[in-house]
Amino acid sequence: MQGYSWQLRDVPDINLMNQAAAIMMEYIDFSCFSKSNTQVKTNNCKITRAEWVKTDNGIVFHITADRFLRNMVRAIVGTLMMIGRKEMEPEGIREIIESKNRSNAGTSVPACGLYLTEVKYPYPLTS
């Protein structure tokens, strides 16, 4: 798995991370997880799934949304890891999201282990 996943020394508390992940789905403005100075019109996204799952090979974070901002998933995982390491409570994610400030969120995790697995369009594509 080296080079294809993020290797952790300690196993974070998955239940706490899933509590915080569920809270994220109540929000649409994810400015706090976006890289600064990007040229987008809005930082609004609709997250429909955010869940940590334990597997035989470790833990996997699944996230589904109607779109992703630049660096968004890496910043979300970094923030959820803070919660999983008990550096903050799951409810603390509300304050981070509502601040709309990237510096309040966790650090971005390494890109290794980040995979786009599916793309769906809400309408049929025409040529």
Rank of each mutant, 00 (worst) to 15 (best):
I83L: 09
Y115F: 10
E89N: 14
N37R: 09
V77I: 14
G78L: 03
A75S: 05
R85S: 08
P90Y: 01
C45V: 06
C32T: 11
I93Y: 09
S103K: 05
D56I: 11
I47S: 12
R94Q: 12
W52R: 00
C112N: 15
L69W: 01
R102C: 03
C45D: 07
P90I: 00
E98Q: 12
T48D: 15
G113K: 00
T117G: 10
T64P: 11
E95A: 05
K35N: 04
C112Q: 15
M81E: 05
P90H: 01
I76N: 08
L114T: 13
R74Q: 05
R49G: 03
G84W: 03
V53R: 11
S108H: 08
W52K: 00
T79Y: 02
R85V: 02
E51G: 06
G106Y: 02
R70Q: 15
I93Q: 01
R70H: 10
T38Q: 05
I97R: 00
T55K: 10
V77M: 15
K100F: 07
T55A: 14
A65Q: 13
N71S: 15
T79R: 02
R102A: 02
G58H: 07
A111F: 12
M88V: 09
T107Y: 09
E118I: 04
G113N: 02
V77Y: 12
T117W: 01
R49I: 07
A50H: 07
V119I: 13
T38W: 08
M81A: 07
T107Q: 06
N101L: 02
E89Q: 12
L80I: 03
